[in-house]
Design a protein around this nucleic acid. Structure first.
Lengths: 336, 336
DNA sequence: CTGAAAGCGCTTACAG
DNA sequence: CTGAAAGCGCTTACAG
């Protein structure tokens, strides 16, 4: 690879001058500029970003910290948003490989050694020591779906509570009075916000909150089906079910149909996420659309703002969601 | 951030000595080593990988070039394998953000400027100019699912032909004689290999190859359904269908059921990929399992070998696949 | 308008 | 065993 020295020598100028044309400094004569650019072309010279970063104390890279696999649909779409926001930004995305074989491994040290300028974090439990290091550090950070703020750390999430309230309201307006809720694992803030949305949603409709109508699962198809099975065994099974993932919703639908009932004629089901599955598999799922792509985009926009502007305060963003009514919700039949 | 100079000063030694303990050189007295390590600890010193890379002319990063979105299940699982192979390897993964706003943007220049040491490529058409640059360059490259080799470039793919042959054979052994094939878009090498597998599979069973039994779709649910619709309109509709994606298979099943027929009693369907959907949605899909995760792992193992060993020849790897028999294939009923 | 020099944070012969 | 010096490929005051 040709270096700036090769170009300088070939063009008969100093490296300082080459650097100046590289960086569009005005104090270079047209003649010199042309000459240098010619040589650059001819030598296929490409400035070394790493060397430049060393002197400018920058790296033009942002990191991602993900504990959830890439195969998770949320992660996949989040990354798609992140990637899109990064195009033309001048920043590249780096996934830091953890080194579990090193007992002293620390995510934040890794960021430092790589000069990563900012990081997007998703799916890391609050208890993880890296989180604490991160929020007390001066490394710009955007958390996704975790309500953590720090010195230079903000977060972005969906309006989880409102989303579930909308689902409950939708079922109520269709005429449902027995509305159950299949929650994701309780603990993380989004699960709590959503549960609160269920309770508030019922209250808004003057419906009682019954613990027998609250089921918890891990967002999966199988546990969604299992939760539904328990609900169907109740003396008064629900006629409407609000789920916190599309997969759990599909599990519930599977179970409802296995019991000889129909969706939506006998039981209405609402999902959450509006993943690929919701639109493709049958019946098309009524679900909450999260703007995951947009969350990805904004997380990067905020991160870059935090990086490039020390006065930019860590933002807290709630992204709106919407109810997408498809084929799995309808007015309850009288038969049940 | 403390630098090596800070450590040297604090420990009362030269930077050369600090560097030596950092790199486990033997020619340092125990006493000095201890002292230096103490100071490192106390200053939370973290060597700057970028600076080290500048002198060693390395970056310990590998890049990925993907044109397919992260939401594609194959991509997601491939990345999961890549990520896994990278843990503890010392290499980090970089996704290079393209700069379409720069008319001179070139992927390979970007790699060079970032000092990326090797790259994994998936889903890029053969015609893309970056491909040509890449295979003629000395940048170690592993192509996934594209049969390209170059100076330092190898590839890895599934045994596509054999996979489809297995599917055909499976149906034949169940008693099917009317076996249709819903291909993915023809052109790319994997589609051609698979089509060859269909033809060869029929030949092995002494079945005729009928063009009316060949349908082409884009791997999606909707086009899979549309292709199936056409097959069902034939005078002699098939009793068995081999698809080249799980999604297309689910589309086909949807269409079969919409026609009042049952799977597998009336028509058997085989998918391809063994994605998440195949195991989760009902009926559980009989499909070809591609070891995508393993392809991800091996692509990185080969890439690192290419990087670290100039004598290592660019490999060509065919990863075995297997037929997973589930609920969508059975012996044909006589009624059809 | 141009370039010599110092420096970013490291490593590595080499001399002592 | 230790350290001064040169160098990796750049940028940026500063002097001329």
């Amino acid at each position: 690879m040709a270096s700036i020295h090769d170009v300088a020598k070939e063009a008969g100028v100093s490296v300082a001058t080459v650097s100046k044309v590289l960086n569009d400094y005005p104090d270079v004569s047209d003649k010199t500029r042309k000459k240098v650019n010619m040589v650059i072309e001819q030598l296929h010279y490409q400035p070394n970003v790493v060397a430049r970063g060393l002197v400018k104390k920058r790296s033009w890279t942002v990191g991602v910290l993900l504990t959830v696999p890439f195969t998770n649909p949320f992660v996949a779409e989040l990354l798609e948003g992140i990637k899109t926001a990064l195009e033309n930004s001048g920043y590249d995305l780096v996934r830091l490989s953890t080194r579990f074989d090193d007992p002293n491994y620390s995510f934040i040290k890794h960021c430092r050694s790589r000069n990563v300028e900012g990081v997007v974090v998703f799916g890391v439990e609050r208890e993880n020591p890296s989180i604490d290091e991160l929020i007390h550090s001066d490394i710009p950070t955007m958390f996704v779906d975790t309500d953590i703020v720090g010195k230079r750390a903000g977060y972005i999430t969906t309006d989880n509570q409102n989303a579930i309230q909308m689902s409950v309201k939708h079922l109520y307006e269709l005429g449902h009075h027995k509305i159950a809720y299949i929650s994701g694992t309780l603990g993380p803030s989004i699960a709590n916000m959503r549960l609160e949305g269920y309770r508030q949603g019922l209250k808004n409709c003057n419906l009682p909150y019954l613990t027998s109508y609250l089921e918890v699962c891990d967002y999966s198809f199988d546990e969604g089906a299992a939760a539904m099975r328990r609900l169907l065994q109740l003396k008064e099974p629900p006629t409407g079910v609000v789920c916190t993932s599309d997969l759990a919703a599909f599990g519930a639908i599977y179970e409802i149909e296995r019991h000889g009932l129909r969706v939506p004629e006998d039981v209405s089901v609402v999902g959450f996420d509006n993943t690929y599955h919701a639109q493709v598999f049958k019946p098309n799922l009524t679900t909450i659309n999260q703007n995951i792509f947009s969350i990805g985009i904004k997380s990067i926009e905020c991160l870059i703002a935090l990086i490039e502007n020390p006065d930019f305060s860590p933002p807290v963003i709630t992204e709106p969601s919407e109810l997408i009514v498809r084929q799995t919700t309808a007015s309850p039949s009288v038969s049940i």
